[in-house]
Design a protein around this nucleic acid. Sequence first.
DNA 1: TTGTAGGCGTTATCAC
DNA 2: GTGATAACGCCTACAA
Lengths: 333, 333
Amino acid sequence: MDKIDIKELARDLNLSTSTVSRAFRGNSDINAQTKERILARARELNYQPNLYASSLREKKSNTIAIIVPELANNFFSQAIKGIEKIARSKGYHTLIYVTDDEYQLEVSFIDDLSNGRVDGIIMSASGESKDHNYLNKLKKKHMPLVFFDRVYDDIDVAKVTTNDYESSFNATKHLIDAGCGKVAFLVINKSLSIGKMRLQGYVDALAAAGIPYKKELIIDCSNDHKKNYNILSKVLTTIKPDGLFASVERLAIASYYVCQDLGINIPKKVKVISFSSLEIAPLLNPSLTTITQPARDLGVHAAQLLFKSLESGEPAHEHVVLKSKIMPRRSTM
Amino acid sequence: MDKIDIKELARDLNLSTSTVSRAFRGNSDINAQTKERILARARELNYQPNLYASSLREKKSNTIAIIVPELANNFFSQAIKGIEKIARSKGYHTLIYVTDDEYQLEVSFIDDLSNGRVDGIIMSASGESKDHNYLNKLKKKHMPLVFFDRVYDDIDVAKVTTNDYESSFNATKHLIDAGCGKVAFLVINKSLSIGKMRLQGYVDALAAAGIPYKKELIIDCSNDHKKNYNILSKVLTTIKPDGLFASVERLAIASYYVCQDLGINIPKKVKVISFSSLEIAPLLNPSLTTITQPARDLGVHAAQLLFKSLESGEPAHEHVVLKSKIMPRRSTM
DNA sequence: TTGTAGGCGTTATCAC
DNA sequence: GTGATAACGCCTACAA
C-alpha cells in the first residue's frame, strides 16, 4: 500500500486506466457513478495523480513563480497574499523566490525557472541597472512575465505600479508645507525605474515651491544597514537637512536609528516621511508619516494580468497604475 | 528555435540522446571534450533538460516545501533564509506556503504536496488542537517532515524548537524583578505545544516567586487584530495588570496600540515583554523588551534534519532545542 | 461510456 | 566512451 499508481488503482477497480484518469480530469465524459466509485476508492488507497507525469504530459505545471527582493516586509507579504488569492482561485500553485536584493540570485532564479518549472512569473525586480538580457529567454520560451512595483523600463511586459511620481511630488510638498526648506532625498537605486520616478517627483516638487535643487541632498544608500547608518549619520551631522524623504522603508528605519543614537529629535530637528507599508508605523517613536501603497491590490492586478496572458496565450503589455496614499503622522508634524 | 528537447540537441550534434543526457548528469563517464561541446551548444540553443521529465524519471523533485503561518514577520523570514541557504547548497528548490494561521489551508497544502511535488516538508504549525491525521499520509508516502518552532506533540517527527519553557520562566522573572506583582500572560493558542510550554514557564516562575497564580490573568487571544484589541482594552481597564507577557509578537503590538489609545503609560503603568524577532523593537515607543529566538539557526537546523532524512532514506526523530535570548529595553524598565 | 495504445522528455541499463 | 531501448505515470486520440 506504499506507492500506488493509476494502473494499480485501475486494476483494483476492474477498470481501465483511461477511465480512472477521466475521473480526475474535470472535463471528459464519464459515468457519474463510476467517477464517484473511483474517487472514493482513490481516497481510501490514498492515491493522487503524479504531478510530474501529468505536467510532462500536459506541458503545463499549474504553478507560477513570484520573485521578490525580500520577505520580512509588509509590502511584499501583502502583495504575495493578493497574488496567491487569485492563483488559488485558478487552481494554481505559487512558488516564492526571495532574491535578498541580489541581482545574481534573480538571474539564477529566472534561469532555473525557464525549464518549464512554472507557467509564468510575477516579479518585483532587484537588478539595478544591470543587463536584463536573461529575461529575453523567457520570451523565447513563451513564458509570460509580469512586473509589479519595481520594474525594468527596458523590458516590454505587463506591469503594475503605483503613481510613484505623483506620490513623491506630494510627499515632498508635504514636507515643504510642514516647514522644511532643506529636504534630503534618500534613495537606494536611482537607476531602477521606481527610483527615477520618485526622484523626479521630488525634484519637481522643489521646483514648484521655488526651492533650488541641490545635488548634495540626494543621498545614495545601499541595501546594507551598517553602511546606510554611516552614510546617514554623516548627512545628519554635516549637511543637516531639516527634512528626510525616504524613498524606501528601510532608509526611514535607518534614519530613525541614527536620530535616536545622535539625539536628533524627530520631528523638531528633522521631519521624516517614507514610502512604507509598515503596519506598526503608528507605534514608532515618533509615529512615522508614510506613503502607503495598495500592496495587496498590486498583487491582485499583477496576477490577473498574468492569468489573462496565460489564458489567451498572448503576452500582455498593459501597464496598470494604482494610487498610493499619504498617512500623516507625528514624524512630520 | 522554439522548444528544443534532448533529441533535437542530439541530432544537431550528431550524438545520441544518451550521450547528451550524460553531459548534464554529474556522474556518468563521458569524454570531457564531448561534454564541453554539448554544453556549449546547449547554451547556444537555450536548451535545458525538462524538469518534469527528469523528475518523473528519477522519482524525485529536488524541491522541498516550507509551510509557515505568516510571512510579514521577521522570525519566519529569517528562518526561511536559513532553510533556503541549506537547500540551495544541496541543489534543492524551495517552495513557500503561507497558511495565514488557517488550519484548513494547512491541511489542503499538505494534501496537495503529497502527490510528489516535493521531496520533503519543513513546517511551523498553524493547527491548534485539531485532528492531525492528515499528516500520517505523509508518513505512508515516505515523505519526511520536520517541524520548527510551532510543533504538534502528537506527531512523531524531527523537531527544532527553542527553550520555550526556560525563556518563559526567565521572562516572567524579569517582569517580577522589575517590580510587577500582577503579570498577565497573553496567549493565542494554549493547546499548541509552544503555548503550553510558555504558559508553564510563566506559571512556575510565579510559584518560584511566591506569587499566587490567577486564572483570570491568562488572556486568551486570537489571530484577529480587532478582537485582540478589544480583549486587551478590557483587560487593561478592568483587571489592570502591571505586567504583560506576550507569548507572541502580535499580542505585544496589540497591547501597544491599546495602551497608546487609552493613554496607559508603558512602562510606568504596565511593563511589557514579548517573544519577538521584530527588527525595530528598539524604535518602538517605548522600545520593547523581547525574548528573541535564533530564527535563522532554527531554519538551518530544520533543513539539516530534513536533508539528513532525505539522504539516509530514514525518517528523522531528533528534537533539537536552541536557546533564545532576552533583550531588555525600556518597556520593562 | 469505456478501453487500447502511443507518446510526453528523460535517464538507466545494457550492449558495443 | 557512446548508442539503442525500455521504462517513469499519466492523458488523449481513436476505436469499440
